[in-house]
Design a protein around this nucleic acid. Structure first.
Length: 189
DNA sequence: TATTGGGGTAGAG
DNA sequence: CTCTACCCCAATA
């Protein structure tokens, strides 16, 4: 769309760019001249521009506006080698992450995953049920969920998504050919 | 305005 | 990776 504006970045250049960002973090004085020095054929200015572009993309991704972040980055800016690791590491800008609220749908899928994989297997729950959240996010969500269960019957509580528990799941038809057939792969790190 | 919900994060294991 | 404790802040009582 608006991509024709930026001068062409080759895959090679992007790779160097990635590496440079990781090496020279936000704290680095003269960051951009250092980064530029790492990217053949790109000026400090161009490198800064590329960074702003990337930052915008990441904002969109984290706002959930982009469904498949990984292939988005690969296609739109030739990123490849590091998936979405870069901006999850300290090397990337750390304006406190906003946090996209869980939808009820996601929460239900979480509960289903819980039944299939069991408590603690956040990795597979993330992979097979709540694909929109990372294992860490699932774990964080689970922590809140269990905390609320255990503090049940306590004073003034306001309604929460965590009040939807596993017993609220529709009992999936046993014989009518529905539906809920989790494709489950056991994934090992 | 004090408290709680619910997101991310740090650090240990 | 998972667990636990903790931080932060918006929404709410």
């Amino acid at each position: 769309m608006q991509k024709s504006k930026i001068s062409e970045w080759t895959k090679e250049q992007n790779k160097w760019f990635e590496s440079a960002l990781a090496i020279f973090d936000t704290e680095t004085p003269d960051r951009w001249s250092n980064v530029a020095a790492f990217v053949p054929g790109k000026s400090e200015y161009e490198v800064r521009e590329q960074y702003e572009e990337l930052k915008a993309d990441i904002n969109n991704i984290e706002s959930g506006l982009i469904e498949d972040p990984e292939s988005y980055l690969v296609q739109n800016r030739g990123f490849n080698s590091f998936g979405n690791r870069l901006f999850r590491s300290r090397s990337f800008d750390h304006e406190r992450r906003k946090g996209v609220p869980w939808t009820e749908e996601e929460h239900r899928r979480f509960l289903m995953g819980l039944q299939v994989h069991g408590k603690g297997d956040w990795r597979n729950i993330s992979r097979n049920f709540v694909m929109t959240k990372t294992p860490t996010q699932v774990a964080s969500h689970a922590q809140k969920y269990y905390a609320r269960q255990h503090s049940e019957g306590k004073e003034k509580r306001r309604p929460s998504i965590h009040d939807i528990t596993t017993i609220h799941l529709l009992p999936r038809a046993t014989n009518s050919g529905l539906s809920f057939q989790p494709t489950r792969y056991q994934v090992q790190g």
